[in-house]
Each structure stands twice: as C-alpha cells, then as structure tokens.
C-alpha cells in the first residue's frame, strides 16, 4: 500500500504527516508513506483543501487531521 500526504508546509500538513507515519508503524502496516509538497503535483489529485491523504492513488481525506482511530479505520479499508 502506498500512502501519500499532500501538503505544502502548513502546520496541519506537518501534523498529518506525523500522525500518518506513527499510525502506520503502530499498526504494523507495510505501507510506504511519502510527502508530496509540490503544489503542481498536489493539484493533480483535484483537491481544494490541504492537507490531504491519498491511498493508492485515491483521495481518502482532505482539509483535516484525523484521530488515530479514524486513520486506522481509513488505512484498514
């Protein structure tokens, strides 16, 4: 599984990246987490709010930082 965190450099974006990385380790998931910071690349996903979370090319979340419980649910789906 490939997880991408889309966000330029705002506080919420950094928070989402941190929570995602921690949750992936916590859940013993083999998913890779990468951060996409280039706005041109970010816009390719058709989002209007950052930060956003993309799993295997699909936008699953945008404009907010989820709780760990929510994030685990998203990753497991």
């Amino acid at each position: 599984m490939e997880i991408k965190v889309l966000g330029t450099g705002c506080a919420k974006c950094k928070m989402l990246e941190k929570v995602t990385r921690e949750t992936v380790i916590e859940a013993n998931s083999s998913a890779t987490v990468t951060k996409v910071e280039d706005i041109i690349d970010i816009m390719k996903y058709g989002i209007l709010q950052t930060p956003a979370l993309v799993i295997d090319g699909k936008v699953v979340l945008q404009g907010k930082v989820p709780s760990r419980a929510e994030l685990i649910q998203i990753i497991n789906n």
């Binding site: 966000g7 330029t8 705002c10 506080a11 919420k12 974006c13 706005i39 970010i42 816009m43 058709g46 989002i47 209007l48 709010q49 950052t50 930060p51 404009g63």
Partner: peptide
C-alpha cells in the same frame, strides 16, 4: 464554507481553473 489559510493556494488554483 470551511476555510483555513493553509488551503488558500489549492483553493485559488481550483477556483481559477
């Protein structure tokens, strides 16, 4: 509409586009 200044750029691009 929910708005955070950290989303200003994607919003601007999305609107203009």
């Amino acid at each position: 509409t929910p708005f955070c200044s950290c989303s200003a750029i994607p919003l601007f691009l999305g609107f203009v586009e």
